[in-house]
């Protein structure tokens, strides 16, 4: 049995001359929460749209539950719940109409669960969608995405534009869904504290390429901030080898290493430098180091 709910292989996508995805390969295992990180325009939504079959692969392949989502939209979409970034729900419907309408598409729709979510999200069944606030729209969208208990829940920037209370609601619902039924959530976000709090695995997407894909605990434990002092002044220290990011000048440098402490010590010894401190990093710092760093190149010593 295939243990990966989503498999993307060497996916490329261009919009005119702009390359949105440049050979993305990604596997999302069944169960747990998978966070897709990236800055604006990194390609997160493009990956999700391929997953949903809204974009056809120009090159490479996408398989969801082992199926091609473009060739078999019914087979894949019936098992997916989706909350879009812009919450594009039909304004002219009332909440109870939206629920009845959505129910018809999903054989596994759970009316009791839908009703409990509606109560939890405090949505008036007679209210028109157009009268909802942005937060309420997100709740309505989430209700529709969750009520058929999908095997894969895809959330595109679920916290975008939401206040902290709604964010908690959404995340709470996600966590409950995962905890209750062991299903999979794939969500994109650039709110790193939120990702760090809920994701089991993450992938960092930068300029259309996957920079990192690993379990959250491995990501956090595998990166360290190292303060170094060189015996002689160094004018330039481009990241290379275990060093993925560098800041500083002269004798004192702050480096980000992707390695265990033994490897760091060995590398520092080779550089003939002294370790001042080695500190753990949070996801925010790791993300910045991964995406804002200079291109990898051979080290140049002064």
């Amino acid at each position: 049995m295939n243990q990966h709910i989503l498999e993307i292989h060497d996916l490329k996508r261009s919009y005119g001359k702009k390359v949105a995805l440049d050979g993305v390969s990604l596997s999302v295992p069944a169960g747990g929460v998978f966070g897709l990180l990236g800055g604006n325009g990194a390609g997160k939504t493009t990956v999700l749209r391929h997953t949903l079959g809204l974009l056809a692969a120009q090159s490479g392949s996408v398989r969801v539950f082992g199926l091609d989502p473009v060739a078999d939209p019914v087979g894949t979409l019936a098992r997916i719940g989706y909350l879009s970034e812009n919450r594009d729900l039909p304004d002219w419907m009332r909440i109870h109409q939206l629920i009845s309408y959505s129910q018809a598409f999903y054989p596994n729709w759970d009316p009791d669960y839908a009703e409990s979510l509606r109560n939890l999200f405090e949505l008036d069944p007679k209210a028109f969608v157009r009268s909802l606030s942005r937060g309420q729209r997100a709740r309505a969208g989430l209700l529709v995405a969750l009520a058929h208990r999908p095997d894969l829940l895809i959330l595109d920037e679920p916290s975008s534009g939401l206040d902290p209370v709604v964010r908690r609601d959404i995340l709470g619902a996600i966590i409950r869904t995962i905890a209750d039924e062991g299903r999979t959530v794939l969500f994109s976000s650039h709110l790193l504290d939120e990702v760090e709090r809920v994701a089991d695995r993450i992938a960092i997407l930068h300029q259309g390429r996957i920079q990192l894909c690993a379990r959250m605990d491995q990501v956090l434990s595998g990166h360290s901030r190292v303060q170094l002092r060189f015996s002689s002044a160094v004018s330039h220290f481009p990241p290379a080898g275990i060093w993925i990011h560098s800041e500083g000048s002269g004798h004192d440098w702050s480096l980000v290493a992707e390695a265990g402490i033994e490897n760091i010590r060995a590398e520092v010894a080779r550089l003939q430098a002294e370790i001042l401190s080695v500190d753990p990093m949070n996801l925010d710092d790791i993300f910045v180091a991964r995406t804002a760093g200079k291109p990898l190149a051979a080290g140049v010593r002064a």
């Binding site: 749209r49 949903l52 809204l54 939209p73 979409l77 019936a78 997916i80 812009n86 594009d88 999903y106």
Partner: peptide, 20 residues
């Protein structure tokens, strides 16, 4: 689509499990 100016299928409709 979402408006007269944006006629590409909206994600809300595009993700409905209904054969073409």
């Amino acid at each position: 689509g979402l408006s007269d100016a944006s006629m590409a299928m909206s994600p809300f409709l595009g993700t409905k499990p209904l054969a073409t």
